[in-house]
Write a protein that binds this DNA or RNA. Structure first.
Length: 136
DNA sequence: CTTCTCACA
DNA sequence: TGTGAGCA
């Protein structure tokens, strides 16, 4: 699984993540404050998110939309420090897929996100950023 | 121009 | 959470 390095590789700044997750920078930073996500920092204290972070953000978003608060989300997402392969015993009412999505699913999901937020002039920018992930 | 932190409405 | 100030 050489994909692990790529999905954990921090590559996009908060601006791209905003468009990808439909969250505001405020929210993303807020969730980070509450340790729901732990983006990498680089150069001038700049946040760099990995695909793992984006997936996580999307899960957080869906939970928020379901009316779950920060505390509640913590209870569901916390059990993951770095490498928690299996051993993911969850409560029956938790359908959250913490297990990694297959590449095809991830790609499809991201493409939909991009297509949903299609705005002349900005799309090229986003795709340009993403191209870094697809190839390289 | 984009992101960051902090503080206040 | 939103928004704006003041930096980097």
């Amino acid at each position: 699984m050489g994909d692990d390095i790529r999905r954990n590789m921090a590559l996009f700044p908060i601006g791209i993540v905003m468009k990808l997750t439909d969250l505001t920078a405020r929210q993303i930073r807020y969730y980070e404050q509450h340790e729901l996500i732990v983006p990498a920092r680089t150069s001038g204290n700049q946040r760099l998110f990995s695909f793992n972070d984006v997936e996580r953000l999307l899960e957080i978003k869906s939970l928020i939309e379901k009316g779950v608060n920060i505390a509640g989300i913590k209870q569901v997402m916390v059990p993951m420090s770095k490498e928690s392969e299996e051993a993911t015993v969850l409560t029956p009412d938790t359908e959250v897929k913490r297990k990694e999505l297959s590449d095809s699913q991830l790609h499809r999901m991201l493409k939909q996100q991009l297509l949903n937020g299609k705005r002349p002039g900005q799309v090229s920018l986003i795709q340009g950023e993403l191209s870094r992930f697809y190839k390289k």
